[in-house]
Amino acid sequence: MLLAENTARARALAGGTDLVVDLKHAPGDVDLLVDVSQLPEFGGIGETEEGLRIGSMVTFSELMASPIVNQMTPEIVAASHTVGAVQTRNLGTIGGNLVTCVPSADSAPSLLALDAIVTIAGSDGKRSVPLEKFFVGPRKTILEPHELLVEILIPKKNLGKPSHFIKFGLRKGQALALVNVAAALYLNDDGTVAEPRIALGAVAPTPMFARKAEASLDGKKPDEENLLEAARVAVSEIKPIDDFRASANYRRHLVQTLTYRALKRSTEIASEH
């Protein structure tokens, strides 16, 4: 209600690891902060009929400590572990990470790879959209000013889907990703790939799927050649930028190498099953 009435200069406060920094740099931009981090309907992790439900205000530390997340979606634990450092993970929330919507958001690729769905609540009710549609541009989501991200759902059919996440930063802790890659796939009985997903971060205005690369691998044997080909196709789909952290060319190179590795590891996990 408060947010709906004061939309222009009000912000919802989650973990604060991004927003508090923004407040320091531009203190005049916000008149009203609404702390949503303790709202019960925004918290909690649990299995429902539709799948695994993660409240948007669940912190990365809570995700990492959750037995159910560890068991059903270990790659979300691995991705959470790459966010900032312990102190950041103790405050930062998965919902906050998605809403801030930086291209390098560490939580995005592994959620995308599992076809996560987000639920949004606003003054005119609730709606659910695939996570891919949630991102609009750098620091821009589909959220209307009166809306909040309530929860994230990993569909039941994707719980336990073989998946692998790789973050590449300039140092191991406290670094923004130069490139993030998450892959997920099943293997058919004949050993061919089914439902491949390749999600990439920090190489386009928003976290993205490499759809053509996925298509190139779908139904094929996951041999060296096909995995490498998918990785090469992924490179053709990205729009990386040059900045002080890395050149666009270096990011292309990383995407190829890391996509290959993520696919390879996902295949290994799938064949162990």
Binding site: M64, A65, P67, P74, A78
Partner: peptide, 10 residues
């Protein structure tokens, strides 16, 4: 749960 996290870490 702790063991699992530990495995992930290791």
């Amino acid at each position: 749960m702790a063991t699992k996290t530990k495995e992930v870490l290791e």
